[in-house]
Nucleic acid binder design. Sequence first.
RNA 1: CGGGGCGUAGCGUAGCCCGGUAUCGCGCCAGGUUUGGGACCUGGAGGCCGCAGGUUCGAAUCCUGCCGCCCCGACCA
Length: 492
Amino acid sequence: MSKEITSRSQDYSQWYNDLVIKGSLADYSAVRGCMVIKPYGYALWENMRDALDKMFKDTGHVNAYFPLFVPKSLFEAEEKNAEGFAKECAVVTHYRLMANPDKKGSLMVDPDSKLEEELIVRPTSEAIIWNTYKGWIQSYRDLPLLINQWANVVRWEMRTRLFLRTAEFLWQEGHTAHATSTEAIAEAVQMLHVYADFAENWMALPVIRGVKSESERFAGALDTYCIEALMQDGKALQAGTSHFLGQNFAKAFDVKFSDKENKLDYVWATSWGVSTRLIGALVMAHSDDEGLVLPPRIAPLQVVIVPIYKGPEQNILINEKAAEMVKQLKAAGIRVKFDDNDNNRPGWKFAEYEKKGVPLRVAIGARDVENNSVEVARRDTREKQTISLDGFTDTINALLDQIQQAMYTKALAFRDEHITRVDSWEEFQSVLKDKTGFISAHWDGTAETEDKIKELTKATIRCIPLDNPQEDGKCILTGKPSTQRVLFAQAY
RNA sequence: CGGGGCGUAGCGUAGCCCGGUAUCGCGCCAGGUUUGGGACCUGGAGGCCGCAGGUUCGAAUCCUGCCGCCCCGACCA
């Protein structure tokens, strides 16, 4: 990692934007606060989506789709939820345009097309979904209801950043209904572990599993479980959340079921989601100054083969060899591209695929064909080695596994180095300022103290880790008694 | 909504203070030589200098208004 990104300079924003844009993941769009996800970035998202989707299905969930628009009356039904999102909603008030009589060639909203009831563009779908579930659930036999949807949502943020906080983003949201509180909590926790599993094993991104403090909790939830990751600049990023919603939404939308004893009760709910923000996490956790570094398991391209030749004879010879390699790799399920584009020279291609974070680059030239070998360069370490074409596919597979593992190990080491146990307020401030990262410290458990710390340092409680060891201590700020340490950090 | 910065070719920019036919790089097009770490040569295309108004013989440059973008705050379950 370079000095540029270890310090929290003002250039960090620029560094991040360059990675995303020059890595061909996404770009700013003509719509304020919204981004265009480019084909390469979308292919990455598809790989992430497919892996997650399989994990959801393996845990018994099915996919469905609900409307983009939420009538205001439904939106406001769950009071806390509505209040939490009210300040960032896009609202549809009219359904028609007309020619502007005062300005030729321009359109205006037709005042006669005003909607009787405004439609909220979903910032999240609890309301519309629970209104639907009301008609689907009568008996304990209808439970549990385990549904996920892949969708876009809109949150009208004042300031946006590519992937991390855009006005519109893609995500999945699971919404489940259960007969008992215990079962719903188990579901919320299970999905948290699914997310953590995905982050660690697919994205090579170590995360801390925890629960949010009351003031950081999802609006309308009784508990918010979360995974928290650490970025290379020492700031934390909430990478996924899973909420135990209690009976709040069931009560707001009157969703009751008869149990085995024919007693009526409200159902218990969860919701959980991860978004394209994960791509931002990926970029900030692994990239270096040469560009993106993508973990092999989700990289759109795992291997790129670059031919190096002088003259058409060599070209033909190398192309034949490369075609053979591509065939072998594809047969082994490896995502490979042979870049035989003659417009760009090898050096240009090397740099290009490094920016895009392709895990392995294979260079093949005349001398390689002669030696029955190729040169392989790892993106994560930038090491090059010459390998034999005998057992080529196995070697590549092994290298991809090694890269996946090494990226995780490296990120984990960085993360662990940046969890600091702190017992004094002075140290708390100096660690935040100089070392950055997570701080494990005692807290008196009050929202007032949490607010005060945020005001003084911009650090918030990221989570209370699951299975957090209990120990007596004194609050870092107030000195009041505390029973456990919690994790603080400045966050995205 | 406050504070700062910026709008000049597809992208990145110089010129603005001190007014006089818009600079350079990348990219693009054509041809050729090249190809083991972002090649080179030659030729070429591409501009309402953010928009509107004003001052002036003359405005990218000065003045006024507007619009847009970026950064820092506020905001971000």
